Amino acid sequence: MPRTLAVQAPEDGVRLITLQRPEALNALNTELLGELAAELDAAERDAETRVVVITGSRKAFAAGADIKEMAERDLVGILNDPRVAHWQRITAFSKPLIAAINGFALGGGCELAMHADILIAGEDARFGQPEINLGIMPGAGGTQRLLRAVGKSLAMQMVLTGEAIDARHAQRAGLVSEVTQPEFTVERALQIAKVIARKAPLAVRMAKEALLKAQDTDLASGLRFERHAFTLLAGTADREEGIRAFQEKRPAQFKGQ
């Protein structure tokens, strides 16, 4: 059983993972990242899990990397940091991932939040990349994902000053999709997750992949991928079920086939 996470078994196709290092504001040490990567690997393999929601506490989603652990590493330790492999496994997760964020999402916490496909934030959430204050810079995708999410100017300001932005600013910039009262953040994320979990799993996966392609490729290549994915889905049993259910005016029962 993980020591730094609480994991709820899938319900209505949704698995909830809660970061639990309250003594350190959920700072992302090697153990936590390893356990999170393992849980996402398990969710990837589990046919009953269609969507994952990840959250922290009311005070902090994750306040960054574990500074104490960082201070104990020399250059050789950094070059051989096991957390790199954990981050790569988290990045490779292909099912929909939703982050429910209250309180601090700073440094590695902000980078973890940006791994999610949909970000739901409480009014008290704060997002930032303060690594510059330690004489370093983001190292888990922060510079790359933040610029794609909020644009060059705001990303430069956040990374170079180390200053955080609040939830409403994050929403206006495009970093989060919704802002809620803090007590409803997880509930709202689970609501969205359950809606997605009822959709055709193959279509959801391919739609996610196509949307991510839009960030990483030119328009012509993205359109080719979209058309290819659309054609593949046309031959699935779920597509037939979806059309039949629409015609019969009933909810579709998608099987992922």
Rank of each mutant, 00 (worst) to 15 (best):
M1P: 15
Q8R: 14
E11Q: 15
E11L: 10
D12Q: 14
G13C: 04
G13R: 04
V14R: 11
V14K: 10
I17F: 02
T18Y: 02
L19N: 10
L19Y: 05
P22S: 06
N26S: 09
T30C: 11
E31C: 12
L33V: 07
D41W: 05
R45F: 03
T49S: 08
R50M: 08
V51G: 07
V52D: 10
V52K: 12
T55L: 02
S57F: 07
R58C: 00
K59Q: 14
A62T: 06
A63Y: 01
A65C: 06
D66E: 13
E69I: 07
M70Q: 12
A71G: 12
D74G: 15
L75D: 15
L79G: 05
D81I: 07
P82A: 08
P82S: 08
V84W: 04
H86C: 12
W87K: 02
W87M: 03
Q88K: 12
R89S: 09
R89P: 02
T91I: 11
A92H: 02
F93T: 05
S94P: 03
S94F: 04
K95M: 03
L97M: 04
A99Y: 01
A100F: 01
I101K: 01
L106E: 03
G107F: 11
E111C: 06
M114R: 05
D117I: 12
D117F: 05
D117T: 09
L119D: 00
I120S: 02
A121H: 07
A121F: 02
E123F: 09
A125E: 05
A125F: 02
F127H: 01
Q129N: 08
G141E: 05
R145P: 02
L147T: 15
R148A: 13
G151S: 03
G151W: 00
K152D: 11
M156F: 04
M156P: 00
V159P: 01
L160Y: 09
G162E: 06
R168W: 02
H169S: 14
A170I: 05
A173F: 02
G174D: 06
L175R: 09
T180V: 06
Q181S: 14
Q181Y: 14
E183S: 14
E183G: 13
T185P: 08
T185R: 11
E187A: 15
R188A: 06
I192M: 09
L202C: 03
A203W: 13
R205H: 11
R205T: 07
A207M: 12
A207E: 11
K208Q: 08
K208E: 04
L211R: 03
L212I: 08
K213L: 12
Q215K: 12
Q215V: 02
Q215Y: 15
T217Q: 06
T217F: 02
D218L: 06
D218N: 15
G222K: 11
L223N: 01
E226N: 10
A229C: 12
F230N: 14
T231G: 10
L233F: 09
E240T: 13
I243S: 04
P251T: 12
P251Q: 07
A252L: 05
A252R: 00
F254P: 00
